[in-house]
């Protein structure tokens, strides 16, 4: 999609050849090892990687072994250099991916994160071996960095906390948050520039938060939903989806997705309408479209209700 003139002078891009698991693969200069892995058909798990965002390197699930490097390297951000020799399935890599999945699985509710069961099985991860998971904490919004209450090790500390529903548009269930920073980056200087949310606190007690954990309507949030768009785990979800999941009516197999153009101004953002039972249940935006790059404003994201209220009211 979207092959548009960029104004840059058309210098041919050099191909870089590296070795992945013993086989050579060539990708354009400036590509990441992840791109090369994809080109080589190596399925690499990723969580914090976002196709519209600068890699944050936070989740460390895409690590690979790079010859000559003391430590493993994140494939999602490390750029290829000629002659690199990469292993994606060595004992070290498998161990690292297994542990990252276990550490996340033992501390975060991954029930709505795509592909988790498949990866857990592939890497033989056992997130239950760290013991029973600690129950809900009501203190995660109070930040005292450098302090924690150490128990006796009988329960595994978790992100578990009360769900935040403070508006009608989206829901924040931080028990499902892996702290990948994608929502922060989407809200911040990479896209929306509203800076309504950030990481607060430190270490394991970190938390995505507004200032003093203010409710979203009182914060700088403009409800563009661009954070929800990039959330990889379902920690952020649209209220429409959340409600249907609660009711048990959410069924992706019964949904269609149609790309059309937003009706609200002359910019022409593309919207993906997710429709179930002839009702729009969610609006996303194509990440590879160079008007919006997956971003919308509040109207494009949530301004679809009028179409269906019309039906309910018989107002046609």
């Amino acid at each position: 999609m979207n092959v548009h003139y960029t104004g840059a002078t058309d210098t041919p891009v050099r191909q870089i050849t590296i070795t992945i698991d013993g086989k050579e693969v060539s990708v354009p200069e400036g590509s990441t090892i992840l791109t090369a892995c994809n080109a080589a058909g190596k399925d690499t798990p990723t969580l914090c990687y976002g196709d519209t965002l600068t890699p944050k390197n936070a989740c460390r699930v895409c690590m690979v072994e790079l010859e000559g490097s003391r430590v493993l390297v994140p494939s999602c951000s490390r750029k290829v250099q000629p002659g690199m020799v990469v292993k994606t399935d060595s004992e070290r890599v498998r161990h690292s991916r297994r542990l990252v999945l276990e550490l996340l699985g033992s501390s975060v509710d991954l029930s709505t994160t795509p592909r988790i069961p498949e990866w857990m099985e592939r890497y033989d991860a056992d997130p239950d071996r760290y013991g029973e998971r600690a129950g809900e904490s009501r203190r995660r919004d109070v930040h005292e960095p450098g302090e924690h209450h150490a128990g006796d090790g009988s329960v595994a500390d978790t992100m578990c906390q009360p769900i935040k529903i403070d508006n009608d548009l989206y829901v924040r269930d931080y028990s499902k948050c892996i702290l990948c920073y994608k929502c922060v980056d989407a809200c911040g200087s990479q896209w929306q520039n509203s800076f309504a949310i950030q990481i607060a606190g430190r270490g394991f007690d970190s938390q995505i938060s507004t200032e003093y954990a203010a409710e979203l309507p009182d914060s700088a949030c403009v409800f563009c939903g661009n954070c929800v768009e990039v959330c990889p785990t379902g920690a952020l979800s649209f209220k429409s989806e959340y409600d249907m999941r609660e009711e048990g009516t959410w069924d992706e197999s019964q949904q269609t997705q149609t790309t059309t153009v937003c009706t609200y101004c002359g910019v022409g953002c593309n919207v993906n309408l997710h429709v179930q039972d002839n009702k729009i249940v969610k609006v996303t935006s194509p990440h590879d479209h160079d008007i919006g790059h997956g971003n919308l404003c509040i109207k494009g994201r949530f301004g679809f209700s009028h179409v269906q209220s019309r039906k309910e009211d018989g107002d046609g």
């Binding site: 548009l169 109207k299 679809f304």
Partner: peptide
């Protein structure tokens, strides 16, 4: 909000 609000008035905007 948008124009005369017949479309944008359909959702409950917190802002």
């Amino acid at each position: 909000d948008y124009n005369t609000g017949v479309q944008s008035g359909g959702f409950n905007s917190p802002i």
